[in-house]
């Protein structure tokens, strides 16, 4: 099950500068574990010690915020687009 993951500038030091990488997993948590296997340390930037998504990290599956889809348990399907972005101010 392959998904495309867009990596923000701030995390590209982990992906060797790659803007987008592919990964796999049936849930967001599984995807992050898969990424961490190849891009060591990236999980610690996304997930806090208590096992929840970092407050200032937003993750979208097909443009929808995962916090409304089950957060780390959000299901992923083959071909999904996952976008990771830091939370910034609008207004």
């Amino acid at each position: 099950m392959a998904v495309q993951v867009r990596i923000p500038t701030i995390l590209r030091s982990y992906t060797g500068g790659e803007k987008a990488v592919s990964g796999s997993g049936g849930t967001l948590a599984e995807l992050i574990d898969d990424l961490d296997g190849r891009y060591d340390g990236i999980k610690a930037r996304l997930v806090t010690d208590d096992g929840s998504l970092h407050r200032f990290v937003n993750v979208y599956v097909n443009d929808e915020d995962v916090r409304f889809l089950g957060s780390l348990s959000a299901p992923l399907a083959d071909g999904d687009d996952v976008t990771i972005l830091p939370a910034v101010a609008g207004g």
Partner: peptide, 12 residues
């Protein structure tokens, strides 16, 4: 989104 690190993020 060019923050220097994630902890500079912002949620209103």
């Amino acid at each position: 989104y060019g923050l220097r690190n994630i902890d500079e993020g912002f949620v209103p």
